[in-house]
Amino acid sequence: MAVIRDMIPPCELFQPASIGDALNLLDQYGENSWVLAGGLDSFDWFKDRIKRPEAIVDLGGIEELSGIRADGDGLVIGPMTSLTEVATHPDIVGRFGLLAQAAEHVATPQIRNQGTLGGNLAQDTRCWYYRGGWPCYRAGGNICYASAPKAMNAEHCVFGASRCVAINPSDTAPATIALDAQMVVTNSSGETVYDAEDFFIGPGIDIERMTVMEPGDLLTAIRIPGTWAGADFYFEKIRDRQSWDFSLVTVASAMRTSGGTIQDARISVNGVAPYPMRLDEAERAVIGQAPTDDIGVAAGDIAIRRAQPLRHNAYKLPLMKNLVRRAVRAEV
């Protein structure tokens, strides 16, 4: 926005101390409420006057929402845990290094100190037409500006478009998919647990949301099972500049190899679709094979097979293909 506006417009701020209190407030204010985690994205929306909630519900005072604890052979991470803590916690670094690497690649040190894992997972898309306040499909309108003939869409999707062509920008999301994580979503009628893969949704399911969460829902825990503890991980985020920037394409993978062959694999890519993609077909192509460059190339070819690039983003195909190739080859 060309106009700089200093102040956040007037609204209520609530700082509940328990999940129950927070859910009551969310029910009371419904669609006019706003859940505040780290706030780094929220404040931009407010300052730009594009989102105008009546009541901000700050989760910072709810102790049970932050921290990392052991759960059997896995971990439970509170969604309000800062990205810095996720990136440096010995249990995560030692056994689930993929998630630590992903958190370390988010934005800048200051943003990681304040930004939370839950906020990073549930963040909204960066499509600048949508961010600029244009009345697009995602904003409740009836047009997609980013796929118009002269649109600037270098950073938009090559898969999964359904009227909207925005992408999911989260760095940690593909890591949660590769680790078979589960998301615990709580609302006033109870708790639902989703596999990470199902937690993120595309515009074909709901064009105005990035995740299964609706107004009144809270992400209350991220469960990392022991399944992939200590596996071989690969994470790479490609971006225009090495600090601050969101990803163009990101790959996160977990693999187990023995006797020179890949026994099991998870490969997830973000930045190419409105949701982080799990590459099932590429996974099947590498399981039982030796992690060679040839197999990496084959997996990369499979991964990009059904892509439909827009006018300015075909560069994402070789990028994605090579990231998948590197993820497979890294096991050599």
Binding site: L13, F43, D58, T84, P109, N113, Q114
Partner: peptide, 26 residues
């Protein structure tokens, strides 16, 4: 004023934060 430059960096409990992008009540 958008957490994009760092000029407003302060320490909260010894850790760096962008003071433009956090509420005083936090």
């Amino acid at each position: 004023d958008r957490a994009e430059c760092g000029a407003c960096t302060v320490h909260i409990d010894g850790v760096t934060h962008y003071s433009c992008s956090m509420l005083t009540h936090q």
